[in-house]
């Protein structure tokens, strides 16, 4: 059970990091557990002859669909019980293979106060132990002002 602390817009600044969060090493059992949870049976995550023979991959791939959950988890925990992860964007640029350990990281690039809450722009990614970045991306998180009202829920995006 996680107990993230409440974060206010005034608590954050450009350059500050969220995380990092570490996961792994990932085994075929982890990938099968995820495949079963979402009932998706793409063979490149568990059928080594198919992955390497048919699809010409270097091995069994850690699901991109699983890696995006880790990004959401890092950001949601960082935003805490009063913040809101509004948008995340990521590209799967490199493969991560069974056996790897992953570091999920994020860093504040910009902060923008709006009328009733603040927006925090972050760059993010997922690195393996060799330092290879596989999942570059960005995110926009809303945080309440310290003396301001709680964020609307469901979330109401700001006017441009």
């Amino acid at each position: 059970m996680n107990t993230p602390k409440a974060l206010a817009f005034e608590d954050v600044a450009v350059g500050q990091e969220a995380g990092p969060m570490h996961k792994g090493p990932f085994t075929t059992a982890h990938l099968m557990r995820w495949s079963a949870a979402m009932e998706n049976w793409h063979k490149i995550h568990y059928d080594l002859p198919f992955a390497t023979g048919h699809d010409k991959l270097p091995g069994l791939l850690i699901n991109g669909s699983l890696k995006q959950q880790l990004i959401a988890q890092l950001l949601k925990d960082w935003a805490g019980p009063t913040g809101w992860v509004w948008k995340i964007r990521f590209q799967f640029r490199a493969m991560n293979l069974v056996g790897e350990r992953l570091e999920i990281w994020a860093r504040i690039k910009d902060t923008q106060p709006k009328d009733s809450y603040g927006l925090v722009e972050l760059e993010l990614g997922i690195r393996n132990e060799a330092g290879v970045e596989s999942t570059p991306g960005s995110a926009t998180i809303a945080l309440p002002f310290r003396e301001g009202p709680p964020l609307p829920y469901p979330f109401v995006p700001p006017f441009a």
Binding site: H42, H54, D55, K56, N63, G64, S65, Q68, A72, W84, V85, W86, K87, I88, R89, F90, Q91, F92, T135, G137, P154, F155
Partner: peptide, 12 residues
């Protein structure tokens, strides 16, 4: 072959 290239997700 099919590969997942990435996503943009907006949460409400």
């Amino acid at each position: 072959a099919l590969l997942n290239g990435g996503s943009e997700i907006e949460f409400l």
